[in-house]
Design a protein around this nucleic acid. Structure first.
Lengths: 342, 342
DNA sequence: TTGACATTGGAAAGCGCTTTCCGGCCTAGA
DNA sequence: TCTAGGCCGGAAAGCGCTTTCCAATGTCAA
């Protein structure tokens, strides 16, 4: 309970505080082997544990980075998180995970707290919100962080210029549209996430662009917005199909929602997939292969994206903003097929 | 870039350092409203951000707790994590998430690092390993942590006495056995996780006990061990059924493995569930309702367990070790049914 | 009006460490 | 033998904050 300090270790070893520090943490200068051993022995003997906060104060840096996610229990985020954590581990850093529960205000608050903790950097996973006030506040917070020497990186667009990993959400949307059109679908519905999420916008935009290019109509009433959750997908699926019974295909803007749609179709609407309706998702999270039928979706290398993001955060920054584009790829599985009337 | 300190704020506001500190962080004493406002204004004006490490040093405490998990991308852990993070958030704490990638050595290392960071406490999710050397080393690390005033809590048994949330793994195993026996199964196989995990042992033990009580044999060759992952479950499923084609039911020691078993049965062994073989899992993770057929499993309130764990960690400790037992409950879904020959 | 006491601001002593700077010692070159 | 230079240990000055202790002022009862 004595709270052993480095001074105690130095005393025990019969050396100065400076020497003890140098012996244990190397740093700028070397200590003769004999002294170093004596210090190490004393430290072990006393059960010494270095004091991180004190080191942080003296060194003016910490070994921690912050990770901001909407919901770590969502496979989309946890897959990226594991990649980021691996990269952080490789650099010997600790990760403070901040779960915003999809609350923008909390996100802002966390950035401020990470700044106060003097985190080396902050990696933002939470796809940005479109609100101007949110963006400018967040931007300001991040500026303050940068002013303190902290680095910032984002996954997906957040509405301002930082190092970023940019999965091709729009391309992905196009791929999904092209796929369904190729199969012969003409009456396609969309289950969308909240309109104020940039990622959602991008995906939808790509999808819509491609449909337009193919001369397929996508009237507003064939788009239903809901939460980016399974339950949101389920509810939206029911509403979409009830309102537009003639649809032959549904594009869900992420896999979690798509799984909700599958459930709605199966349990409530009693429609067969893909015989009555085709379903395509987005992200290619782990469980897409285990639902029935396996979900056709737009693949994103989530773990790698997380890794990349953390790398951007940790590598010394060359001048200017760096951007890593990550392509999306269509994965055909059992949930999409030609419409019955073809 | 100036790195504004509290002293700067005090100067700007024309007060002493002490007053500035008291104005911004309240603490033990009060400052007149007028002065407080002046300080707050100065702080805002200068873009002041308090220095966490310095505060930690002066206050001798930090606002962070550590969370140790095997794999945050595994729904079992991420569900518990979200509960723990919510509780931490409610207490205004930041969470350092340490992902061990199922490596005991890394776990030990993380505990040491959390100690160095002066984390308020450490919550261990990673179900303990049985190895004596691991246990004693971990125990020693945790003792050192406690010596520094850090608290420790575990989810599931870890082989030593700390505050703990103890889901009734053994009961759960019994329930699974009882359920399959009730349905009429007599030739039952087990897909098990690594033998050196305590949780695994407990579940298996309960299952075995109950079978014995019912006079149902469980010969060693009907148990196949593998990783606690989907792929592990798939491989074990194939091996188990190939070796014991007469089995009518399989108990997987967690849902992730059970999903692997389902995949093996469907894609490789071409056996129908539950018509040819029944499958029961354990944990009741989110996606159990979305696989086909929906997985019968032993329910554990994962998020709540995580919450409880964090609470134990944060509440002032009464004397002695506290233990919260959490019951398991069987959930019948589509993957279990009477054997065909009944 | 005076003394006792509460109230509030400020000076200063740390918290545990890193790192600069200084001085002593040793080696080597002349 | 003497001096220049390299090495290495130690003293001490912070890092940015909290909090104790003290002093000054104001308040109230007698």
């Amino acid at each position: 309970m004595a709270a052993v300090t480095l001074q105690d270790v130095a005393n025990e070893a019969g050396v100065s505080l400076a020497t003890a520090s140098r012996a244990l943490h190397g740093g700028t200068r070397v200590v003769t082997a004999e002294l170093r051993e004596r210090v190490e022995k004393a430290a072990r003997h006393l059960g010494y544990t270095s004091h991180g906060p004190a080191q942080a104060l003296a060194r003016a840096t910490t070994p921690v980075v912050g990770l901001i996610v909407h919901d770590i229990a969502d496979p989309y985020f946890s897959a990226m998180a594991i990649g980021a954590m691996r990269a952080a581990h490789e650099s010997g850093l600790l990760v403070l995970v901040c779960n915003t529960f999809r609350d923008p205000a909390l996100e802002l608050d966390y950035v401020a707290r990470l700044r106060a903790q003097r985190a080396r950097g902050v990696l933002l996973f939470g796809s940005g919100f479109t609100e101007r006030s949110y963006q400018s506040t967040l931007h300001h917070e991040l500026d303050l962080l940068a002013g303190l020497g902290g680095r910032v990186a984002c996954i997906s667009p957040h509405g301002f210029a930082t190092d970023a990993v940019l999965p091709e959400h729009r391309d992905g949307g196009r791929l999904a549209a092209g796929h369904l059109a190729d199969l012969g679908h003409r009456r396609i519905g969309v289950v969308s996430g909240p309109a104020n999420l940039l990622v959602n916008q991008e995906r939808l935009r790509g999808f819509r662009d491609q449909l337009r290019a193919l001369d397929i109509a996508l009237p507003q009433e064939q788009i239903v917005k809901s939460d980016f959750t399974r339950e949101g997908g389920r509810a939206a699926g029911v509403e979409l199909v009830t309102r537009n019974p003639e649809l032959t295909a549904i594009f869900a803007l992420n896999d979690v929602m798509a799984i909700g749609v599958l459930a709605a179709l199966r349990d409530e609407l009693k429609l067969a997939v893909p015989d009555d309706v085709s379903v395509v998702g987005f992200d290619d999270i782990a469980l897409t292969v285990d639902v029935q039928p396996p979900l056709s979706t737009v693949h994103l290398p989530l773990e790698e994206i997380g890794r990349h993001g953390m790398r951007l955060l940790l590598e010394e920054a060359p001048a200017g903003v760096r951007t890593v584009r990550v392509p999306a790829a269509l994965v055909r599985r059992g949930s999409s097929a030609p419409p019955r009337d073809c």
